[in-house]
Simulated assay, not measured.
Amino acid sequence: MSGAPDLSAFVGVEAWIFDLDNTLYPAESRLFAQIDDRIGAYVGRLLAVSAEEARVVQKDYYRRYGTTLRGLMIEHGISPDEFLSYVHDIDHSPLSPAPQLAAALARLPGKRFIMTNGSRGHAHAVAAKLGIGDHFEDVFDIVDADHVPKPEAAAYETFWRRHGIVPPKAAMFEDLARNLAVPHAHGMRTVLVVPTGTREVFREAWELEDHDAPHVGHVTDDLAGFLDRVADSLGAPR
Rank of each mutant, 00 (worst) to 15 (best):
A98H: 15
A98I: 03
A98D: 13
P99F: 06
P99L: 04
Q100Y: 06
Q100C: 07
Q100P: 01
A103H: 01
A104F: 11
A104W: 12
A104R: 10
L105Y: 04
R107T: 06
R107P: 08
R107S: 07
L108Q: 06
P109N: 13
G110Q: 13
K111Y: 03
K111F: 00
K111V: 02
K111Q: 12
R112W: 05
R112K: 15
R112A: 13
F113Y: 15
I114P: 07
I114F: 04
M115Q: 11
M115W: 07
M115C: 11
M115R: 05
T116C: 06
T116I: 03
G118D: 04
G118Q: 02
S119H: 03
S119P: 07
S119V: 04
R120Y: 10
G121E: 15
G121F: 11
G121N: 12
H122R: 09
H122S: 12
H122Q: 14
A123S: 11
A123W: 06
A123K: 05
H124F: 11
H124P: 09
H124S: 14
V126A: 07
V126Y: 02
V126K: 03
V126H: 07
A127I: 03
A127H: 09
A128G: 14
A128K: 15
A128N: 13
K129S: 14
K129W: 07
I132C: 15
G133I: 06
D134Q: 13
F136S: 00
F136H: 01
E137A: 12
E137I: 05
E137M: 12
F140G: 01
F140R: 04
D141R: 03
D141S: 08
D141P: 06
I142R: 05
I142V: 11
I142L: 08
V143Q: 11
D144V: 00
D144F: 02
D144K: 02
A145K: 06
A145T: 09
H147R: 10
H147G: 09
V148C: 09
V148Q: 09
V148R: 08
V148P: 05
P149G: 14
P149W: 14
K150E: 11
K150Y: 11
K150H: 14
K150Q: 11
P151Y: 09
P151I: 11
E152C: 12
E152F: 12
A153H: 10
A155H: 09
Y156W: 10
Y156V: 04
E157W: 01
T158C: 06
T158W: 05
F159L: 02
W160E: 02
R161P: 09
R161N: 14
R162D: 08
R162M: 14
H163I: 03
H163S: 01
G164R: 15
I165H: 03
I165Q: 02
I165Y: 06
V166F: 14
V166W: 10
V166Y: 05
P167D: 00
P167K: 00
P168Q: 07
P168V: 10
P168W: 13
P168K: 08
K169I: 00
K169R: 14
A170H: 10
A170E: 08
A170M: 13
M172Q: 02
F173S: 01
F173V: 00
F173I: 00
E174M: 15
E174W: 12
E174G: 15
D175F: 06
A177H: 03
A177Y: 01
